[in-house]
Design a binder for these strands. Structure first.
Lengths: 217, 217
DNA sequence: AAAAATTATTGACATATCTCAATATTTTTT
DNA sequence: AAAAAATATTGAGATATGTCAATAATTTTT
């Protein structure tokens, strides 16, 4: 049973999707698709954790968000240019199902309730991007890092302490700064007893303080 | 006749929308809606120019894009929280039509081709936001300003020279910098004969150079 | 037409953040 | 287990950009 927008499909549609979907596995570090590549399938993540990121001419990349198991990944190439506009890479070993994008389109055409639910899903993504833009533009580094740590704790690992596969560079790419800066700020937060951190282990000790830094600093 | 996504409606649907829509006029500087306010209507711009911007706790605002006549404005509050997630203000005197959002929803439910076209419209917006994020994050000020000037010339005024109602603060808010910085960079571009500029008159003299600045620095 | 208010411009200065380079640590490969 | 590679850490220095304050130019109001 799907936990994402596909759960709004009619039983016959669901059966059809179940029939045509096929599994693909990815090891940690492997890329599911690259920005610019053709968009041929919608992908459902059965297990794993992935990063969605924008690349530009330079080496630099911006991690927009992470994708957890259960989530569906389409992309704004759907019904525009049928290209991927971001890259998707596995942070942990990942099991994915591929669904032909034309079959997905049929579901929308045949089922207007599903179409509306899909629009709602797109809009939630849009709201997320607005928030990302706000955070990236208006906060100093401390605020951006606080925002990233709270995101990881609340949205991704759903715990105050967690062990992550994200590198310091990844954390920096989520926070719009260099890896050196991310390291320095994590150290500052540690020294101020706002967090505990050893290598890939993080524990948020003072969430109120982090929220305050995110909002005011 | 609509030039936006509404042109894909069936004749009877179009008739219905024409019946229920009502006009509202706004003077330069007036706000159509504010971020946080309830989303009750979809708006079609008949005449004018508007700025779409994000606000945050502080004074600061980020202009995401401009809206020209013919365009439709909904917002990601549709089928999520029914709130506006950005503010919309007239830069020029504006004529708008308001369409009840529930009637708009009916159009999607009744007409799956329209639903798909609306999804395509949302996705183009999503791609635009990705590009904005990329520009905001990776360019130095010169690159961001070049990007803004090219956007105004190519997407908005559709001419190499134009007279704008945008203030220096607006141009700064489109380019993720302070107004002082925007003034300094415009001056630099003038001194380098890349543009001509007197008050609100702009002329792009060397587009290739601007594109180069946008892409490489 | 004068006064007031807003917006634009310039300069001096402060500082947050990046860059680069050296070293340390951890992970992967042999 | 040793060697190699990748990632993380720290420090010193450079610089792009923001802040603040003073002045100039427009625009709006009276």
């Amino acid at each position: 049973m799907f936990t994402n927008v596909l759960r709004y499909l009619e039983p016959e549609q669901l059966k059809k999707i179940e029939e045509i979907k096929f599994p693909v596995n990815f090891a940690k570090g492997e890329t599911i698709f690259k920005q610019g590549a053709p968009l041929t399938h919608v992908i459902v993540i059965n297990k794993g954790l992935l990063k969605v990121y924008l690349e530009d001419k330079e080496l630099h990349s911006i991690i927009i968000r992470l994708i957890k198991s259960g989530e569906i990944v389409g992309g704004p190439g759907f019904h525009t240019d049928y290209r991927h506009h971001f890259s998707l890479t596995a942070l942990e070993d990942t099991e994915a199902f591929f669904i032909d994008v034309m079959q997905f389109e049929n579901c929308i055409l045949e089922n207007s309730t599903f179409a509306i639910k899909f629009i709602a899903y797109l809009n939630r993504g849009h709201i997320g991007l607005f928030n990302k833009l706000r955070v990236f533009e208006h906060k100093h580094m401390n605020g951006r890092m606080a925002s990233t740590l709270l995101y990881l704790s609340e949205q991704i690992y759903e715990a105050d302490e967690f062990e992550t596969e994200l590198s310091r560079q990844d954390i920096a790419d989520m926070s719009a700064m260099t890896k050196e800066s991310s390291i320095r700020i994590i150290k500052n937060f540690k020294d101020s007893s706002i967090i505990e951190c050893n290598n890939n282990y993080f524990k948020l000790l003072n969430k109120e303080h982090l929220i305050n830094i995110m909002e005011n600093g």
